[in-house]
Design a protein around this nucleic acid. Structure first.
Lengths: 241, 241
DNA sequence: ACCTGAACACCGTTCAAGT
DNA sequence: ACCTGAACACCGTTCAAGT
């Protein structure tokens, strides 16, 4: 007897009456609280209060907090804009997506945490997945390579931004410059890694926002170059690919 | 009056007496509980109990739970092995790191969450950063490009694995095959994305573990190709780079 | 059908008090 | 110096009861 495979997205929606709570209002209230106060301080009680309802009333529309957050996560995916793949060259489509995704992650900092905690199977997530897939198709990938390539840019962006958010959560409100960071690292390691420290001091841009943006762009360029290289006809083509 | 820049790693350590609690034991107990029960069920009370102490005793060694987790996170970084960059070609070093990092993230599933929540500034994190940096130096990058390239592979791996862990957390214990996933997606989207669904059905490997491993490898190859392409002398070299 | 409040089993953290 | 227990202000969720 194996567990049944189910999903939030397959549940019968509750029929709201004209006045009273509604699932979309609950999700909206959750998003507003998340934007204002962050994931850690979101509680069912606060969502209820925001809607002039008891916390426990939410449980008529939602099985539990995770299920609500799964809906909220799909709202996040709905905020990430991707150009229609027919309307621009594939590198431009993916670059625009990468920058939009980065901006959305930074504007709604709870998004990255939810992506790491809950599956992304809602309609907005699937719409985005489909658009990206078509961008890779238009690039010229075939067969299984479409599938293999289709998550690369998104993974890269998520992986870059996630630790940045963690850093900013802790040190974002602190007035800090590059030199102080390096000094702190030196105190942690002793005289351990002189070249690493010299590098930070000498070559990394003094403004951390600029440094982050440049590194993001550099890596994205590498990834796109590498994808192009693996396209049929490119010199990285695999035998029988 | 700006906030002072401080860190866990700069605090004066408490002097433990011969018998009694010790910071390293507290960290060790936390890691064990994390491996056994996951991040969400870790509590100060449980850590205390595991050490035959009251939960509040921990606060002598640790300012709060986040600070303890910052130490725990550095333990995680300590588990990620990277070959010495002198001992192998740079692509091999980075490939080995990528696979090791992926394995460690999968073996200690709380790691990815902590990376997204807390800064990685401990000695193990810095040791890893330095090794990776030297791998990029050995590859042939110069000046600011060392800095710009140095996070790329790590970001990619983190971004790939993080959503996989979220998926497995929800559906990992469910007996599920590819067809059931596709059917569920079709129920969510209606007949929305026929090509996306056909692709999943026809070209993605039937075993999800195999599918994930192949996609991981493909993207890593792309990224390494793209890095190589940007090396001085490569055709992607930038003017004045 | 929808909403409520009381209640349960938890949290992280503070603090006065003990040794 | 180190550890304790009581206490505070929270959590998510269940459930019997209301309308």
């Amino acid at each position: 007897m194996t567990k049944q495979f189910t999903s939030v997205w397959l549940r019968e929606p509750r029929q709201p009456k004209a006045s009273g709570l509604r699932l979309d209002h609950i999700i909206g209230a959750a998003v507003e609280l998340l934007d204002a106060e962050g994931l850690e301080s979101l509680s069912m009680r606060k969502i209820g209060a925001k809607l002039d309802a008891g916390a426990t009333s939410l449980y008529w529309y939602v099985a539990n907090k995770d299920e609500l957050l799964e809906w909220v996560l799909d709202e996040f995916w709905g905020m990430v804009e991707v150009p229609e793949p027919d309307e621009a060259p594939w590198r431009e489509v993916l670059t625009t997506f990468a920058y939009n995704f980065r901006d959305t992650l930074r504007a709604h900092r709870w998004g990255a945490s939810l992506i790491g905690q809950l599956p992304s199977m809602g309609p907005n997530a699937l719409r985005l997945t489909d658009r990206l897939r078509r961008a890779y198709v238009r690039a010229g990938f075939h067969g299984i390579d479409i599938y293999l390539a289709s998550g690369t840019v998104m993974s890269y962006v998520l992986g870059v931004v996630t630790p940045e958010l963690a850093w900013e959560k802790t040190y974002g409100s602190v007035d800090i410059n590059r030199e102080e960071i390096v000094q702190m690292m030196e105190e942690v390691t002793g005289e351990g890694y002189p070249e690493l420290m010299a590098d930070y001091r000498e070559v990394s841009p003094a403004n951390p926002d600029v440094a982050r943006a440049m590194a993001f762009d550099f890596g994205l360029l590498c990834l796109l170059d590498g994808l192009e290289h693996r396209l049929p006809g490119g010199s990285g083509e695999r035998p029988g690919g």
